[in-house]
Design a protein around this nucleic acid. Sequence first.
DNA 1: GGGCGAATCAAACGATCGTTTGAGAATACG
DNA 2: CGTATTCTCAAACGATCGTTTGATTCGCCC
Lengths: 220, 220
Amino acid sequence: MTASPFASRERTTKERILGAAETLFATHGFAGASLRQVTAAAKVNLAAVNYHFGSKDKLIEEVFRRRLDELNSRRLSALARIAGQPDTKLEDVLDAYIRPALDLSRTDGGAAAFVRVLARAYAEHNETLRRFLSDNYGHVLRQFATEFARQLPGLAKEDIYWRLDIVTGALTYAMADFGIIQRKNDVAERDHREQAAEHLIRFAAAGMRHPSISSSTATR
Amino acid sequence: MTASPFASRERTTKERILGAAETLFATHGFAGASLRQVTAAAKVNLAAVNYHFGSKDKLIEEVFRRRLDELNSRRLSALARIAGQPDTKLEDVLDAYIRPALDLSRTDGGAAAFVRVLARAYAEHNETLRRFLSDNYGHVLRQFATEFARQLPGLAKEDIYWRLDIVTGALTYAMADFGIIQRKNDVAERDHREQAAEHLIRFAAAGMRHPSISSSTATR
DNA sequence: GGGCGAATCAAACGATCGTTTGAGAATACG
DNA sequence: CGTATTCTCAAACGATCGTTTGATTCGCCC
């Protein structure tokens, strides 16, 4: 069960595979990164993937689950600290939603690569993957929507979801660092991320708050 | 030079390959869709791709160029109609930026698939592709930034680009129809798109307009 | 310390990948 | 009509893919 103490310098074989897979999937995509690249980067034998995970698809699933569970709980615990409180502001709720996601990309571990994997997963538009994400995030989104509704009592439930959807889009985009804004050399990575978070939160707050003309059915 | 008149029922071999490639790249990704799938869907011989395009990479480039040139010119002509006019509002500029992109996904042709290809390209995060997009869109973005600066005189140039970046993220996300909001059966596809466009434009207008505290250098 | 399951390894499996080849069919043009 | 050019086609190329195999090594426990 336990790994041999000196078989690897730092971590177990499973963990090294997961780390290498995360990086390579982010760079070359799921189909673009081969198991030979992954096992070479992890410095393990090729057969180790199928031995420990069963197949490449199962490995991909594990890469997701490991990070999503963490992001998931961070968001919910941040929300739990402020939900229902009388002095909670809209910006605080957005912060609980946005900051754990952006923080994920600047942790010292290999988690930074995962945000690009996640963004890529959105692009894959795979129905199986969509369902997987929906199952893992559905209740999170619902909890946030409830708190947003408390913050914006004049807004229809439908509008809440529309706007939360837009925020998610901007956040996904920002997480992957697609932006046209290139970080200058004299700005540290973490400061750049912090600026992105602040801009995004303030932008989103203004967008969420703007007066609704909800009942207007789109004609066109 | 010209294609044989009856070799294909509707279009030339090159066009049928481009159409099939667009659809399959959107569904399975660039690495995930094989040339055998593409040529089978296009009902042409396998060797036709390398004959007409030279390689798979060149085919991918052509898929992009065909649609980007169209989107490019539509945005610029929409901007040209309103730029510098005294009665032009912020929403109009955003409309010129957003609507051509969203319209692309509801044209009757095969263009609908391309928006997902475009979103996937962002996720690929390939440096070569990024440069390609930057070369094709750099001047477009600069022209829009100029008009946004005229609409928002109190805003620093840097903030303009930050916020325009956020809008682009939300737009890319919306174009690919990633959203959690599922279209209901009694709402037509075009009405759904129209609603998305209106929500996005109003959201973006509020976000672009909100008061700046630009000079605050991010600490932490 | 001998047996046992867990883990790692090199090697090979069949399948599929992008690309190339060379012959044949279709078209253009003198 | 005959030649030249353009295009299509079936077949095969070498490379690489995910996966499997069988032997070997390692750590653990009775």
